[in-house]
Design a binder for these strands. Structure first.
Lengths: 227, 227
DNA sequence: TGACTTCATTTTGAATTCATAATTCAATTT
DNA sequence: AAATTGAATTATGAATTCAAAATGAAGTCA
C-alpha cells in the first residue's frame, strides 16, 4: 500500500479539500449564484476558518473553472455563458462516449442489473411526473456507467465538467415531448449496455447529451434575453 | 471588456499562478523527478517566495494530478504508473479526436497552410534523424490542430493531461520502424485535415495516439523492471 | 542484535499580521 | 449637476507566527 492511500484512508482530509467540496456544492446548487462576488472574509466567517485554507480552496476552484479570480480584486462565481456551454458539451460528449465504451469492456452482470434497477425506478418517476426524482435516477445511471468504466481520471474530469453544467437550472425548460424522448434514449442506452455494444453505446450517449444541450441552450438563451 | 480581461492585460499574474507554471515545467522536464519528495521550505528558497503562495500552487498542481499531497506529510511529485497511463491515454484519444473533428469545422486555409509548413519541417527533421527537433514540430502540429478547434476548455484539459504524459521520456525507446510509421500517420493527418474530413481525422488521431501509447507503455514496463 | 520508548528537531497546517492595491465617498472643481 | 480628486476605508497578496503532527536519533531493555 502506498503512502497516499494509507494516509487518505486513515486521517480526515485537510481543510482546503473540505472547503473545495463544500464550496463546489454551494455553487452547483446555486446558493452561490453565477456572477456573484464572493468576498473572502464573508466565506471565512460562514465556514469558521481562516483565510489561508479558504484562499487555497478558491485557487483550486478557479483552476476547475467554477470561480474566477481577478488579481487584487478577489473572487467571483463564474458566469455560465452560451459560449462556455458550447465548449463544454462536446467535451462531455467525448468523455461520456468513452465512458460508455470502456464500461462495455469491463461491466459485470451484477453492475448491469443494478443499472437496470435504477432505470426502472427512473421510468416510474417519469410516469409519475416526478421531475427531481427522475433527474436523480438519471444522474445515478450516468454515474454508474462512469463507475463501470473503471477509470478514476476519467471520472474526475467528467465530474468537474458536470459541475460546471449542472449549475444551469434547465430542468424547468424541459418539455414533456423532450422528456419522453430522453426516456426512449435511456431505453437504448440500457440495451446497448446489456449487449455490451461499446461503439453503439458511445454514439447513443453522445446523441443523448447533444439533445440535452439543445434544451440547456434554449434555457440559457431565454435567460440571457431576460437580463 | 470584462473585468478579468482588463485586469490581466494590465497587471502581472499573481505569484501562485507563476509558481504553478514554473513548477509544472520543472516536473514535466524532469528536473523534479517523479516520486521525489518536495519539501515546501526547499521550494520556497529556490523561488524566493514564502510558503503561502507556494502552498496555493501545490494545491492546484495536486488537483491537476502532477503532485500528490499527504496530509501532514507534505508533497511528492506524482509517480507515473502504467495504470495511470492506461487511464490517461484513452482520454487523450477522445479529446484529441474531438479536437480534430472540431478543427475540421473551423479551420481556415491559412491555418492548414501553416500546419503543412510545420509538417514539412518535421519531415526534414525525420530524414535528418533529429529526434528532438522532430518531436517539437510534432507537438506543434498537434497544438495547431487544438488551436484550430477553437475551444479553450478543450485546450486546457488536453494540456493538463499532456503534461502528465510528457514526463515519460519515452523518446529513447522509439524504434526507427515506429518512427517511420508515425510519419506515415502524420501524412494521413494532414490529408484528412486538408479534406476537412472530421470523423476520419478523429479516427487517425486516435489510432496515432494509441500507437504512441504502445511505445510509452513499453518504455515504462522496461523502466519499472529496472527498479 | 533488534525492537520499543522517549524526546528534540523538523515539517506541515492554519491563523495572524503586515504591506499594498482597490474601493468608497466626501470635498472640490468645472 | 456632473466629473474629478484625494483621503479614509476595506479587501487582497504575501510573509510571518504559532500549534500540532511527523520524523529521526538516542537510549533502554529483552
Amino acid at each position: 500500500m502506498n503512502i497516499e492511500q494509507s494516509i487518505s484512508s486513515i486521517s480526515r482530509q485537510s481543510l482546503h479539500v473540505e472547503l473545495v467540496e463544500r464550496l463546489r456544492d454551494l455553487i452547483v446548487d446555486g446558493t452561490l449564484a453565477a456572477g456573484e462576488k464572493i468576498p473572502e472574509r464573508e466565506l471565512c466567517e460562514r465556514f469558521g476558518v481562516s483565510r489561508t485554507p479558504m484562499r487555497e480552496a478558491l485557487k483550486v476552484l478557479a483552476a476547475d473553472g467554477l470561480v474566477s479570480l481577478a488579481p487584487n480584486r478577489g473572487a467571483w462565481v463564474s458566469k455560465i455563458t452560451v459560449t462556455e456551454l458550447e465548449e463544454v458539451f462536446p467535451i462531455m460528449g467525448a468523455l461520456e462516449g468513452l465512458s460508455g465504451e470502456m464500461a462495455c469492456l469491463h461491466i459485470s452482470d451484477q453492475q448491469i442489473a443494478d443499472i437496470r434497477k435504477i432505470h426502472h425506478e427512473m421510468v416510474a418517476h417519469f410516469k409519475a411526473g416526478e421531475l427531481n426524482e427522475y433527474f436523480s435516477a438519471n444522474q445515478a445511471i450516468h454515474e454508474a456507467i462512469l463507475e463501470a468504466a473503471n477509470n478514476p481520471t476519467l471520472r474526475t474530469m467528467y465530474r468537474t465538467l458536470a459541475a460546471r453544467i449542472r449549475r444551469a437550472r434547465y430542468l424547468a425548460n424541459m418539455t414533456d415531448e423532450r422528456w419522453a424522448e430522453a426516456m426512449d434514449e435511456h431505453e437504448q442506452i440500457l440495451q446497448a449496455l446489456e449487449g455490451r455494444e461499446g461503439e453503439k453505446l458511445a454514439m447513443i450517449l453522445r446523441e443523448h447529451l447533444k439533445n440535452k444541450f439543445d434544451t440547456v441552450r434554449q434555457w440559457l438563451v431565454d435567460e440571457e434575453a431576460e437580463s
